[in-house]
């Protein structure tokens, strides 16, 4: 897999040298072999260095990488079985949300996931991963079903936001998201959510009011996509990088603020470099968190879920000038 992001240029050059040497195969001279090993070591070292010090805006490009594993990839690698259920039973089926019961390690869970498209055709089919209202209503239908059959809910979040078209307004995008936010806090089964790429605005949160919120190392979670935030604040989406840097949207910035529960480390150079390793990390984390939450009584679980979101916020007190809330 090529290094194709702007900040990966030094890595791409090294990779070029390495592949040139590798092409020689058996004709490789002893000193060239040493050189090859040297380059490979340097590549690993540099990748580690660069990825350890990614700026927020660089993280955005990794989170949106065209080869980044999407929900369907994790489902394929993580689940023994998955039966996709479709449609909201009142308008249609949305392709940006993929959901249904799945077996993970002998346990049946209800999966509710955002799904982006890989190529042009699929991207169009999935509406760039931006759900229409019927997507959220499908999610609600299946989350209620999960409650009925006492299946834990596992959600994978990967959407830059809800679909912002006029048809979405007509079908009640605001109401669809609002209903999800109203439903999730009271669902009597454990909910584990993971942001695998982009978690953007209410469109992501609508499947993210969970007992545990996990984030892949290079994913982002934000009140609005940087482009949208820049449009709102400065009337120009070209200032997106400023919005991204200011809004603290990367996993390592959000964890200390108490807004997420855990960061899942990615393979060297990003999740897209090793699907299997990433899936193993994700699976382990989901099962571990699920076991912890399942150990609580239902009432205790609901109270903790309520308190978890209740505590989120940072505000001041006029008289005392002291800070309250989660920081």
């Amino acid at each position: 897999m090529a290094y194709d992001l702007e900040f990966e240029k030094p890595l791409a050059e090294l990779e070029k040298k390495i592949s040139a040497l590798q092409r020689k195969g058996d004709r490789l001279k002893p000193d060239e072999l040493v050189q090859l090993q040297e380059h490979e070591r340097e590549l690993r070292q540099k990748t580690e260095d660069i990825y350890k010090h990614l700026t927020t805006w660089q993280t955005v490009s990794v989170a949106r990488h065209k080869d980044r594993p999407y929900s369907a990839d994790y489902i394929r690698l993580m689940c023994d079985d998955f039966f996709e259920l479709r449609g909201d039973r009142s308008f249609g089926d949305d392709h940006a949300i993929m959901a249904g019961p799945a077996k993970i390690d002998q346990q049946t869970v209800m999966l509710v996931c955002h799904q982006k498209g890989r190529d042009m055709k699929e991207r169009q089919f999935r509406n760039l991963g931006m759900p229409h209202p019927e997507g959220y209503r499908k999610a609600q239908r299946l989350m209620k079903q999960a409650e009925k059959f006492k299946m834990p809910i596992v959600t994978l979040m990967d959407a830059s936001g809800a679909s912002p078209g006029l048809v979405d307004e007509e079908r009640g995008q605001a109401e669809a998201i609002a209903s999800s936010l109203y439903l999730m806090p009271r669902l009597r089964v454990p909910i584990i959510s993971t942001i695998i790429g982009e978690g953007g605005s209410g469109g992501a949160l609508a499947i993210g009011v969970a007992d545990r919120v996990l984030m892949l190392e290079n994913s982002i979670y934000m009140v609005a996509a940087p482009e949208a935030a820049a449009t709102i604040m400065w009337r120009d989406s070209a200032h997106a990088s400023y919005a991204a840097e200011n809004m603290r949207i990367s996993a390592r910035e959000l964890l200390p603020l108490g807004l997420i529960d855990e960061i899942l480390p990615e393979p060297l150079g990003g999740a897209h470099r090793n699907y299997k390793q990433m899936t193993a990390t994700l699976k382990e984390a989901i099962l571990r968190n699920l076991a912890e939450v399942s150990a609580l009584s239902t009432d205790e679980m609901l109270e903790r879920r309520y308190q978890k979101f209740r505590k989120m916020g940072a505000f001041g007190n006029l008289e005392a000038q002291t800070l309250a809330g989660s920081i």
Binding site: V223, M233, R248
Partner: peptide, 17 residues
């Protein structure tokens, strides 16, 4: 926007209440 994800989480907080 200036409060980033804190703002988004208010949606969850108020909805839960």
């Amino acid at each position: 926007m200036q409060e980033g994800l804190f703002s988004l989480m208010q949606l969850a907080k108020i909805s839960a209440a």
